[in-house]
């Protein structure tokens, strides 16, 4: 019943919490929340609450890019965050989320990976970006992506002493080049909306996630949801995402 109500409201351009269709919920960004991580951020958008922690480690580079540090992004839908989440290895949705966030960071060339090379072909820094759900009330991708860049911006590299990592001594910041902002635009009949709650997500026809760079260039996209989009809708959704990304960027 509530499902129908949410749907009807959205179709008439209104939302349960009184927001405009293109309005985000309150956004709170806390940084350095996890002292033992090399970088961290906790982002809350409405009741969605996500912590991202960055750990740095040494590793062997991929053979095709021997002079670049590595980025590994993982997401866990921890069962504490929602009655629908169960313990176990990451499923399809968690995997997609991690890969979309990873793509935004990677394709924007957010981090200068070449500066993270210690010995070409042998040793490079690896950044582990771990996305941890605390509470799920929709729009997990935008919140995770924002928390990830907020955490990366604060990340400090540990000191190397005789080839060993000393995490007690953190030195310079990660070499950040660009900051991608990911905005998901939802579609329901002929309406577009931003920052859907979990209830709203259940009635959406489709979603388009768009990662936007400082200069308005797009660096990643992913369509989701079970209905198609026309060319014109796609184009309007991209424009809306770019516009909203500018608002989010100011918060960092």
């Amino acid at each position: 019943m509530r499902h129908d109500y949410v749907l009807k409201l959205l179709e008439s351009g209104e939302r349960l919490d009184g927001r405009k269709l293109d309005e985000f919920r309150d956004i709170k960004i806390e940084v350095d929340t996890i002292e033992r991580a090399e970088g961290s951020a906790r982002v809350k958008i409405g009741k969605t609450d996500i912590i991202v922690g960055i750990k740095m480690d040494l590793g062997e580079p991929f053979p095709d890019v021997p002079n670049q540090g590595m980025l590994r992004t993982g997401a866990e839908f921890s069962p504490i965050a929602s009655p629908e989440f169960n313990p176990g290895p990451p499923g399809e949705d968690a995997t997609e989320l991690a890969r979309v966030v990873d793509r935004g960071i990677r394709e924007s060339e957010c981090i200068d990976l070449e500066k993270l090379c210690l010995k070409p072909g042998e040793q490079v820094w690896t950044m582990f970006v771990d996305i941890h759900m605390m509470n799920h009330d929709g729009n997990l991708i935008d919140v995770s992506a924002l928390a990830a860049v907020a955490a990366l911006m604060r990340t400090k590299m540990p000191e190397l002493e005789d080839g060993k990592i000393n995490r007690e001594k953190l030195k310079e910041k990660l070499p950040i080049k660009h900051i991608p902002i990911t905005v998901t635009v939802g579609k329901i009949s002929d309406k577009f909306l931003i920052d859907p709650t979990k209830e709203e997500e259940q009635v959406l026809d489709s979603k388009l996630m768009v990662a936007v760079m400082e200069d308005g260039k797009i660096c990643a996209m992913q369509k989701s949801g079970d209905q198609g989009l026309s060319e014109e809708e796609t184009s309007r959704m991209i424009d809306l995402a770019i516009k909203k990304s500018k608002e989010i960027r100011k918060l960092l």
Partner: peptide, 19 residues
């Protein structure tokens, strides 16, 4: 109906290029 059901992107493009 030219209904798009999969759309992904990586790389860097202006919105006009995407369109």
């Amino acid at each position: 109906k030219n209904e798009i059901t999969l759309l992904q992107m990586d790389g860097q493009l202006n919105p006009d290029e995407v369109k």
